[in-house]
Amino acid sequence: MADMLATPEDLASLLERDDLDLYKATMLVECATAVVQAAADGQRIVEVIDDTAEITAGTGQWLSLPQWPVQSVTSVDYNGAALTTPAGYRLRGTRLWRRCGWSDCPLDLNVATVVYTHGFPAGAQKLQFARQAVLGLIRDVYDNPGGLKAEAIDDWSATYSALSTQMDGTPTLRAALRRQYNRRQ
Score class of each variant (00 low, 15 high):
K126S: 12
I49D: 03
G88K: 01
S75P: 06
T84M: 08
S64R: 09
N110I: 00
T113R: 14
V46N: 14
K126Y: 02
W97S: 00
T85M: 10
V76C: 00
T94C: 06
V73K: 03
T56I: 12
A124G: 05
I45F: 05
T52R: 02
A81F: 11
D50Q: 13
A32R: 13
V111F: 07
G42D: 09
D51W: 00
S64C: 04
D41S: 13
D21M: 08
T117Q: 02
S103L: 06
T113W: 03
A39T: 13
Q67M: 04
W68D: 02
V114P: 06
Q67C: 02
G60E: 11
W102A: 07
D41E: 14
G80D: 06
I45E: 04
R90L: 10
G93D: 09
V76Q: 00
I45V: 13
L109M: 11
A38W: 10
A112D: 09
N79V: 07
R98A: 03
T56V: 15
G80C: 12
W97Q: 10
T59Q: 11
G42Y: 10
R99M: 07
A112S: 12
Q43V: 05
D50K: 03
L22A: 14
D41V: 05
T94Y: 00
L83Q: 05
A39D: 12
A122L: 10
C31K: 14
R92G: 02
E30I: 09
L127D: 06
L22S: 13
M27N: 14
G101F: 12
D104H: 06
D18W: 05
Q71W: 00
P106C: 04
A25P: 15
C105M: 09
E47T: 01
S64E: 11
L96G: 03
W62E: 14
C105S: 15
Q37N: 13
A39L: 07
V29I: 15
T74C: 01
V115F: 00
V115R: 01
G88S: 03
A57D: 10
I49C: 01
S75T: 13
D18M: 09
P66H: 06
L127C: 07
L109S: 14
Q125A: 15
V46W: 03
P66L: 03
V29Q: 06
E54F: 02
S64W: 00
S103R: 15
D104W: 08
L28S: 12
V70R: 01
G60D: 12
L28T: 08
W68R: 07
L109R: 15
A34Y: 04
G93Q: 09
Q61P: 02
T94F: 03
T117W: 01
N79K: 07
Y23S: 11
T52Y: 01
V70F: 01
Q125Y: 08
D104L: 05
